[in-house]
């Protein structure tokens, strides 16, 4: 049933034959995968297998490293139009705003909590004044951070705990109204309760966004993933869907073999 639905729908993001080299060392080879709206795709794989590199290839962040070379295509579909982001589908800054990313280690701007959110909002959406404060509160409530920070919005964002910073990063990403979310181990630095909260948030968000996430926890992968891609030494060696995820032992066996 699901399969037929998917066939009718077009993917929101499709990566085709993507290869990435860092100074002639292949890091990703011939990777292809697709992302459908309403689904969370999780990438798992050993450390150094190229998961973060894959995410950075989608919003073209790898290009900031001068010794990086990328080939293949990444097609994005937004408002019914689609195109290859490596062939001028949209301006770089728009791409990175449409394809939001949260890094493996929380990366807040070393400015006030408030400014972390308002800076991108002002720059892109031209929001100002009271609308700005309203938007900020709304987004902070979405990620469950409002109660914790409402009295210290002018404090430096680096004084927040790791988990709070990670949620602030998610908030900052959502503030830009993206279409696709790239999440590099979004719960890596969180205790289980905050992690559970973020998982719940993601399950909520997946209705509105295409989500590509990296996770190191197999338990978490089983809880949130609709599809799983196993990456090893820069290649996708296995793709799993709901069927494989249902039975924990079978899933474990497949993963063991793939790693």
């Amino acid at each position: 049933m699901e399969e037929t639905v998917r066939k009718i729908m077009e993917p929101i993001l499709s990566v085709e034959n993507l290869s990435v080299h860092f100074s002639d060392k292949p890091v990703l080879q011939d990777v292809s995968l697709s992302l459908w709206p309403g689904e969370i795709t999780v990438i798992v794989g050993p450390s150094g297998s190229g998961k973060s590199t894959l995410l950075r290839a989608v919003n073209r962040l790898n290009e900031l490293y001068p010794h990086c070379r990328t080939s293949g295509s990444v097609r994005l579909r937004i408002h019914g139009e689609s195109g290859d982001v490596y062939r001028g589908f949209m301006a770089l800054s728009e791409l990175r705003q449409r394809v939001g990313m949260v890094f493996q280690t929380p990366a807040v701007f070393p400015f006030s909590i408030q400014k972390n959110l308002t800076l991108p909002l002002q720059v892109y959406l031209g929001v100002n004044g009271s609308t700005l404060t309203e938007r900020m509160e709304e987004i902070l409530r979405d990620v469950g951070l409002w109660e914790e920070v409402k009295d210290r919005l002018r404090d430096d964002a680096t004084t927040l705990s790791g988990g709070q910073q990670q949620r602030l990063c998610i908030a900052r990403m959502l503030a830009l109204k993206p279409a696709v979310l790239l999440l590099d181990e979004p719960t890596a630095s969180l205790d289980f309760k905050s992690a559970a909260r973020i998982e719940k948030l993601l399950l909520n968000l997946k209705r509105r966004y295409g989500i590509l996430a990296v996770s190191h926890s197999l338990a978490q992968t089983r809880r949130i993933a609709d599809r799983v891609c196993v990456l090893r030494e820069g290649r996708i060696v296995q793709e799993l869907d709901h069927e494989h995820l249902r039975d924990p032992d079978a899933f474990q066996t497949i993963i063991d073999v793939a790693f």
Partner: peptide
């Protein structure tokens, strides 16, 4: 480096 690249990841242009 991560801080230098952070702005780009939210879509800032070089000048911004």
């Amino acid at each position: 480096e991560p801080l230098r690249l952070l702005g780009y990841s939210v879509g800032f242009t070089r000048w911004r």
